[in-house]
């Protein structure tokens, strides 16, 4: 099964406008043929298990954009689901460049799998360069604090950072607010073991309720694109105002998504 490439994945990846060199690589290590394999594996594992639904795909503009969702679920399943629906269900298909945590490049094997599939180290200059190259990036402005939320904090938002807004202003990129419903229930963390996290140099160490992710249904809601103008290097208070507008829309999308959900599973 691992060797077989899904024909729909292959078609979607072949249609991508991403620039690659004569050996098939871009500078970050994305490779269409390898990506086909890993997206096929992802599709076969995640789609039947989490059965993602999606709304608002028509809101995705053409060209560069920052997708800004809530973050949850301890593991980056939400990022993978967004990447999967944007590739498989959007028309035209989009390759979402996920911004990974700074310790990912240190992980043997995983680092290569992620970079061949299009993931990139979460660094402002990487984001800027990708946006200037008209690519799609997904940024979780809550950072690791967002994915490490415990059960009582589910579907609340940790404070958004300002970096994504400065990038959007600098590169004149639209922001697509997004809500992911389901992540909070897939891996329920009852406690964040902070002393263990400090010991291992991890952002958090969850105590999960179950030893594996639950087969919760995921719902992805894309909001209408938001365009901002102004100086990217403006004072923090000015940027904060704009950031707040985005986080408010994400909150509304979460509320809408939760209201529309009839069952967790």
């Amino acid at each position: 099964m691992l060797r077989a490439i899904d024909p729909d994945v292959a078609r979607a990846i072949d249609s991508l406008p991403n620039k690659v060199n004569e050996l098939g690589y871009d500078a970050w290590g994305f490779h269409k043929e390898r990506a086909k394999l890993w997206y096929s594996v992802g599709k076969r594992l995640l789609t039947p298990y989490f059965r993602p639904t999606v709304s608002g795909l028509e809101n995705l503009p053409l060209g560069r954009m920052l997708i800004v969702p809530n973050h949850s679920g301890q593991l980056p399943i939400d990022g993978m689901i967004i990447a999967l629906v944007a590739l498989m269900q959007a028309e035209p298909p989009r390759l979402v460049r996920a911004m990974v945590e700074r310790w990912f490049p240190r992980l043997p094997f995983i680092n290569e799998l992620f970079s061949r599939s299009g993931a990139v180290l979460g660094d402002p200059i990487n984001c800027r360069n990708l946006l200037l190259d008209d690519q799609v990036i997904v940024v979780f402005p809550e950072g690791a604090k967002g994915s490490g939320k415990v059960w009582k904090e589910r579907y609340t938002l940790k404070p958004f950072g300002r970096g994504f807004m400065r990038l959007a202003l600098q590169t004149e990129s639209p922001i697509v607010p997004c809500a992911v419903i389901g992540g909070e229930e897939s891996i329920i963390s009852i406690h964040n073991w902070k002393s263990a996290a400090r010991l291992f140099g991890m952002p958090y160490v969850p105590i999960p309720l179950t030893p594996f992710p639950l087969p919760v249904q995921f719902h992805v809601h894309f909001g209408e694109p938001m365009r901002f103008s102004g100086r990217f290097d403006d004072e923090d208070s000015v940027i904060d105002e704009k950031v707040k507008q985005v986080s408010e829309v994400v909150k509304l999308l979460i509320a809408k998504g939760l209201a529309e959900r009839t069952s967790v599973f």
Binding site: A27, P105, R106, L121, D123
Partner: peptide
């Protein structure tokens, strides 16, 4: 280019 160093936090390019 060795003076830039190979580092897990290097951005591209």
């Amino acid at each position: 280019f060795h003076i830039y160093g190979a580092h897990p936090r290097n951005h591209v390019p």
